[in-house]
Amino acid sequence: MTEINFAGERHALAPDETVLECLERTAHALPFSCRNGACLTCMMRVRAGTLPEAAQAGLREGQKQQGYFLPCVCRPDADLEIEAPADAELFGRAMVSEITHLSASICRLRLRTATPLFYHAGQFINLRRGDGLVRSYSLASVPRLEDILELHVKRLGGGKMSNWIYNDLAVGEALDIHGPNGDCYYIGGEPDRPLLLIGNGSGLAPLYGILRDALADGHAGPIHLYHGSRTAKGLYYGDELQALAREYRHFHYLPCLSGTVDEAGPEPGVQRGRADAAAFADHPDLSGWRVYLCGYPPMVQTAKKRAFLAGAALRDILTDSFEMQDVRRLPRD
């Protein structure tokens, strides 16, 4: 029987139970969000015992060495003594410096931190509001270009955090942030490699960061960005992206509308159909390409397979899938 020792109490794990499930069963309220080893919201630390490898997958080397692990994917084989990390170890403060509505359902949130955050454009941070609710958002800002952090928040039906940001949060208020996390970002040192960026909805956020990071780095190979939306209004940042495409001849911006003509509205220069479908039709051979896929999980998952079968190496396919916590049905945008 495997046991965990937490806060001076011992709890036996049920068969196949995760540490997070065990702590919930024994009435410990821990913060969590994705329950899938992705968002790092529930991160804890081991004091004694051996962790299964899966409990630390996706953490940075430094975090692993310090004994951090993810209880939501931790099914230990041996007894563990664990603790919740001190709050200050994980969270820093940030102040809201701007909230701009970019479309009916997407707003731009800009944050300022007291000390600079070291991150790559395209990674994500966790936001925590006063009552402890935590959600992950990807970084559209580029550290070498701007001091602020920029996030794109899509308002979702039933989304607790997104509706709060949309309706209640105001400039000047403070939020706790944790991060950066994730490995979906521009990798320098291979300036000639062709890049394919595919995103739908606010999946544009990490891609907008990755794109500008690549251009600022002097990336010389072709860069193709396909942004998909159901409606024309959902194709936010179109002017900015078209301006970049005029300035950089090797950058190609391809907005795609997947809604019916009535829903989408007439829009010159916009392709019909889904962004991923258009991208794979235009680029049937992706050998040697690096591919970035950001947005709704079903698109990311199918596109990952298609990109791989089209010749991209699996390690060159970088993804940022939305996690959607309190959303049963997605309003389509």
């Binding site: 998952q301 990952k304 397979k305 791989f308 079968l309 699996l314």
Partner: peptide, 16 residues
Amino acid sequence: LTDPHVMHFFDTTDMD
């Protein structure tokens, strides 16, 4: 993954 005879035995939800 492209062989219809065996592809269904290989997971594409967790490719990594």
